[in-house]
């Protein structure tokens, strides 16, 4: 029997695999667009419910607008979160993802980025509409948008951890929300504080910097926790 020789085939560049994962997942998402649209419609409906619940007075609405938009965004994010790994878990693509010749953390980061592109970007697009519906004073629109831009990666990163832990359970969203929402409290606090600071005529730089730091921390550390979670779930 011949002694096995090292495989002479060139290793594939990690960046190439990273791009391929993003490309495939975007393609899959484009084939099931309703899944992307539903959380967005949910968000709009929840926003509509608030004036009906607390009364249409523009000053009340303007005062609570930032908090309402962020709470609604958190809730609607919980709805579609499972998509990060659920389908991949069911059809076996998740196993294959863990067998790619790159670090699992790297593939996980690609999944997080795809999720952010598919869920956060649409929210960023309709943010002006939400701000308009809730009478948020116009000088705070930019800051609200900025909090969503730098805060939503935390949702995708923390969400990936939660989904990695629960994907094998078929339990759906309630458990996931119980795990994740308490962890997202700082995000909500900093984001609404940034908008309120702007409305009070103070610089929102402090809270924005805090969100930024929290965001960087989440996105860099989450892949490690996700990897550990997937190890448990894939068994």
């Amino acid at each position: 029997m011949s002694k096995p020789t090292p495989n002479t085939r060139k290793p594939v560049a990690s960046g190439q695999i990273f791009r391929q994962i993003i490309r495939r997942d975007l393609r899959v998402a484009m084939r099931q667009r309703s899944d992307l649209l539903n959380p967005l419609i949910f968000l709009l409906i929840v926003i509509t419910l608030f004036p009906l619940g607390v009364g249409p007075g523009p000053d009340i609405l303007g005062r609570i607008a930032a908090g309402v938009i962020w709470v609604s965004a958190l809730l609607s994010a919980m709805l579609g979160l499972e998509r990060i790994f659920r389908d991949d878990f069911r059809d076996g693509a998740l196993e294959q993802l863990m067998l790619l010749p790159v670090a699992v953390e790297f593939s996980v980061l690609a999944k997080i980025i795809v999720h952010w592109l598919l869920t956060a970007v649409p929210v960023l697009v309709i943010t002006p509409l939400l701000a308009l519906l809730l009478n948020l004073p116009i000088q705070a629109w930019g800051v609200l948008w900025l909090t969503l831009l730098i805060g939503t990666p935390i949702l995708s990163a923390a969400g990936a951890i939660g989904v990695a832990l629960t994907v094998s359970l078929n339990k759906g969203g309630a458990l996931l929300s119980l795990l994740l929402l308490p962890l997202l409290v700082p995000l909500l606090i900093f984001a609404t504080a940034a908008v309120e600071a702007t409305l009070a005529g103070v610089s929102p730089a402090g809270p924005l910097a805090l969100i930024g730091a929290f965001s960087v921390l989440s996105v860099t550390l989450a892949p490690f926790a996700v990897k550990a979670g997937l190890r448990v779930s894939v068994n």
């Binding site: 951890i161 832990l165 629960t166 962890l183 700082p186 926790a225 550990a228 979670g229 448990v232």
Partner: peptide
Amino acid sequence: AGAKAASILALVGVINIPIIHYS
């Protein structure tokens, strides 16, 4: 498996607690 998952969550939580408290 449940215990392992709970361990991961507890660790994520303990990293987050100072941030939650501060916020």
